[in-house]
Design a protein around this nucleic acid. Structure first.
Lengths: 196, 196
DNA sequence: CATATAAGTAAGTATTTGCTTGCAAATATA
DNA sequence: TATATTTGCAAGCAAATACTTACTTATATG
């Protein structure tokens, strides 16, 4: 195989990991399989990552930077709480449907290994989203638009159920679940909960 | 080891599977590990189940009978829709917190293997719950108590997010998540969605 | 009591796993 | 151009995997 820089190979490897997980399941994510899918030797993989575990951690790092990073931007923008909440929800739905392998990776790997680092990462990703939602809701209450008596924590928890159950639908329906206007529909429900 | 009937051994084995998954993760669910936890030889396991896969399927069968069965009873009872919905929700929360290993098993195993039979079983479990919720909501609308303009399907989807995100909390918090009145709190939110 | 069956074990099996080794060739740097 | 570093590969490693085999012992049944 033609020589490539570590940077390029690392991206290829990470991408192949997600591909394999989505098409064949986590159990078939062996370094042998991974090498075959890319078309390189198994040994070459270990030139670019020191271990299989390190590949997973690199992917999670990407998620934190790309996905959680963009959610933070949305939550902290200058728009109205309602607009921010909708953007947050729709961005989440889009990310999940566009990156189906990632969530399968996160959940399966975290629960498969009972790995402390992985679990902590997943917890951070989960909790950050919840905090961003809580913050937006509190802003909406402070601005007088939303009901001040609503239990913010509980609504944030209920909110988190949206991406999570979407995930399950995606996994179970072999990616065929088509979420037309899914985020708009869910947003209508959220507003009914939040309004006075 | 003292001799026991297949019936007793099968229960022991299934129970040990859930125990291992919850404490050590799915990856450590080997037949070797399983035998060690029960205190029997590895070969003996294969006296009572023909394969490891068959153990998983037996557990899923249990879930369908015990858990889904009881939810059906609740949904079809003579009580008011509100009372039935609350019972359904609380029974689900209780089952999940009491059987933490089961949901980890279902999701991890289904996504790990990309196994058709497992996925179909999980899908059935998921969809049955959604249908029961939809049915109760429709009853509540028919009785005039709940808003006839609510999007039943979407609310059922949002409802499913409750047990699912509870699951994630349980997995990530190493079982320490304490859900005091969790179902009551969520029920309050559901009612705000359903009421006129 | 005799015998068939069910439940147990220790020690295998072949296969798969993550990862290493020894060496070749491409590329960067002096 | 000479040398050092990086990227590649084929082959091999020990450990783990699900499951089998050959044989023993307990229990139920005629």
């Amino acid at each position: 195989m033609i020589r490539q820089s570590t940077e390029i190979r690392q991206e290829q490897i990470k991408s192949a990991v997600l591909d394999i997980i989505f098409t064949d399941g986590l159990k078939n994510l062996s370094t042998r399989n991974l090498a075959k899918r890319i078309g390189m030797s198994e040994g070459a993989i270990f030139r670019h990552f020191t271990s299989k575990q390190e590949i997973i951690l690199a992917i999670i790092k990407d998620v934190k930077r790309e996905f959680i990073g963009s959610l933070r931007m949305i939550a902290n923008s200058k728009k109205t709480p309602e607009s921010r909440l909708k953007s947050l929800l729709c961005a989440t739905v889009k990310y999940l449907t566009d990156n189906k392998g990632i969530t399968m990776l996160l959940f399966s790997e975290a629960t498969s290994n009972n790995d402390t680092i992985l679990k902590a990462s997943l917890q951070e990703i989960f909790n950050t989203q919840k905090k961003l939602v809580s913050k937006i809701i509190l802003d909406g209450i402070a601005s007088g638009q939303w009901d001040e008596n609503i239990p913010v924590e509980n609504i944030a928890m209920l909110y988190m159920g949206i991406p999570v159950s979407l995930n399950i639908e995606l996994v179970l329906s072999y990616g065929e679940f088509h979420a037309d206007n899914f985020c708009s529909k869910m947003m209508i429900l959220m507003l009914k909960l939040l309004n006075k």
